Computed example of a mutant assay.
Amino acid sequence: MEVAVIGINHNNSPIEVREKFFFSESMKIESSDQILDKSTKEIIIVSTCNRSEIYVASDNIDLSIDEVKEFYKEFFKFSQAEDYIFVKKRRDAVVHLYMVAAGLDSMVLGEDQILGQIRESMTFSMNLGFSKKVLNRLFMDAIFEGKKIRSKLKISEIPLSTSYIGINLLKKEIGSLNGKKALIIGAGEIGTLAIKYLYEEELEQIYVTNRTYEKVKEICKDFDKLTPIEYDVRYDILENIDILITATGAPHTIITHRDIKKLPNRLYILDLALPRDVDPKIGEKENVILYHNDDLQKCQKKIY
């Protein structure tokens, strides 16, 4: 049995393309079922802000690759999908996964989160029976080697994540975050990291909200100076803050162009989600400076 990876990632696809190919958990199940009905024997889907990659094991790897490429076009209803799809098979697929696990194929070089995302992807497929002996062993080895590479290259000595790089971008553009006010929308790992880094910047006030208010209350237990707000009033305080950071798992925009009124003061928006949380047209509004994931790579080079 041979292996391959067929996917779309930040190396050849802008964010407006990548967000079309994001897999939710339910979509992973549906997609895996469809692909396994054909020539593919095992499958693991890795879907993050920077990549949607389908790893397969098959007795006829070339046929399996063709089927997955066709799946991308049909499932996501995007006829130009093949213009952005890359394919690596056999040894090249293994090397690619090792590079991803080590953080060497990330938009933010050496990012901390990807290793956990790879582990979660493997566990998800393994528990549902989508991956078995071949891909499970490949992913476990990649995780092990990824840790060794990070340690050898001392990548982990610098805390790298999209949240970390994004907040450094804001510091560069604003000058100082001291005394500023911010709203964080999203109570997952990325949003929590953003709060952690903002705490080090001595902001005057940090608001936090999430569609599920119970998650907000959990975060507030760990960060005593947070101000929780109800999700439905998120627009109401935009004119009173300097920074908006969004990092939700919503499949659609949660900050829309039509719902933002004219702002009296400059608002910096950092959209760390994929699909994007913030309508890109908002960046054209007066007094709004909008950044998303594709802006972070430029900032990282300046941090070093």
Rank of each mutant, 00 (worst) to 15 (best):
A182Q: 01
L183G: 04
I185D: 01
G186W: 03
A187Q: 06
A187Y: 08
G188Y: 06
E189W: 10
T192G: 14
L193M: 15
L193P: 12
A194E: 06
I195Q: 06
I195F: 14
I195E: 12
Y197W: 05
Y199I: 06
E200L: 14
E202G: 02
L203F: 08
I206F: 02
Y207M: 01
Y207R: 02
V208A: 03
V208Q: 04
V208H: 06
N210G: 14
N210H: 13
R211C: 09
Y213M: 10
Y213E: 07
E214R: 06
K215I: 00
K217F: 06
E218I: 13
C220E: 03
D222C: 15
K225A: 13
L226C: 10
T227I: 12
T227V: 15
P228C: 00
I229A: 11
I229C: 01
V233E: 06
V233F: 05
Y235T: 02
D236E: 15
D236H: 10
I237G: 00
L238P: 00
N240H: 12
N240K: 15
N240V: 04
D242M: 01
L244F: 10
I245Y: 07
I245L: 01
T246R: 06
A247K: 00
A247W: 03
A250T: 02
P251K: 11
H252R: 05
H252V: 02
T253F: 15
T253D: 13
